[in-house]
């Protein structure tokens, strides 16, 4: 198979970027999208040219490193997978494919298709944990957790922190990412003691980092490789409201301030 690739190239964060066209030859249908890019890069290197920078590590959809916008869609055309899980058999021979980085104010471009996603880590540092020291934990079976509850918590906890939800959102909001973590911990007894401060701190951090507000368009859910449900955004809003009631001083409006008024 053969493909024409329009790839975003940008030397550094302060430089201007542009699309450059490359031909990908000798592609087999069983190749992954990233292996196809490896091939393009191998040819560039041999010519002494700088290969296209892109991020990857596990290549099996779990580390959250890979992050390409393919033909306008974060992680490409198929639902429920990451870029590294996309195979070339998905594209017709001879197709023209556009490849861009995640685009969001909070994710500055480092080089080509690589962006800086540390803002997501900083949101986690603001409160995405149970502050329990090592040692002295009670036996794991002391607190029983119903199977359903554990499964729902696991649904939320499956987020890989890739940031596709941000890249897909016209407001570049990180609501789905924050919702996943807040919901995961709010659903479990271990997360309950800090749920009030957690939701508040994480949403504040999200604003501080320059992510936009939620426009309820659900594009995030559509591109999420782990199919994190927007229902968790409702859980997040409920947690925020509850925090306002429990902790005076926080606004207790019926609508979450993070939902954009339409």
């Amino acid at each position: 198979m053969k493909f024409t690739l329009n790839i975003w190239r940008q030397k550094g964060s302060d430089e201007r970027g542009r699309f450059v066209t490359y031909e990908a030859h000798d592609v087999s249908s069983g190749m992954s999208f990233l292996e196809m890019l490896d091939g393009v890069n191998q040819r560039l290197i041999v010519k002494g040219e700088e290969p296209v920078a892109f991020e990857q590590d596990c290549r099996e959809g779990i580390c959250g490193s890979c992050s390409l916008v393919i033909n306008g869609i974060p992680h490409g055309p198929d639902r429920g997978i990451t870029t590294c899980q996309l195979y070339m058999r998905r594209f017709p021979d001879g197709a023209v494919i556009t490849i861009e980085p995640w685009r969001a104010r909070a994710f500055p471009i480092i080089k080509d298709l690589v962006v800086d996603r540390r803002a997501l880590d900083r949101i986690m540092q603001a409160g995405g944990y149970v502050s329990v020291p090592t040692g002295g934990a009670v036996d794991g079976n002391v607190l029983l957790i119903s199977k359903d509850q554990a499964e729902t918590a696991m649904d939320a906890a499956s987020c890989i922190g890739c940031g596709a939800c941000v890249a897909a959102c016209k407001n570049a909001s990180a609501m789905l990412f924050v919702a996943a973590k807040v919901s995961h911990l709010a659903l479990l007894p271990q997360g309950k003691p800090e749920r009030t401060s957690r939701v508040k701190a994480m949403l504040e951090a999200m604003d501080r980092e320059g992510f936009g507000s939620c426009g309820n368009q659900n594009e995030c859910e559509a591109v999420c490789p782990k199919r994190i449900s927007v229902c968790f955004i409702a859980t997040l809003n409920r947690e925020y409201l509850r925090a306002g009631v429990v902790e005076p001083g926080l606004p207790a409006e019926p609508e979450s301030p993070h939902a954009e008024s339409v």
């Binding site: 944990y129 149970v130 329990v132 090592t134 934990a137 009670v138 036996d139 995961h184 997360g191």
Partner: peptide
């Protein structure tokens, strides 16, 4: 026990 306390589902 530690992992359960950290909220691992």
């Amino acid at each position: 026990d530690q992992c359960v306390a950290l909220g691992i589902p």
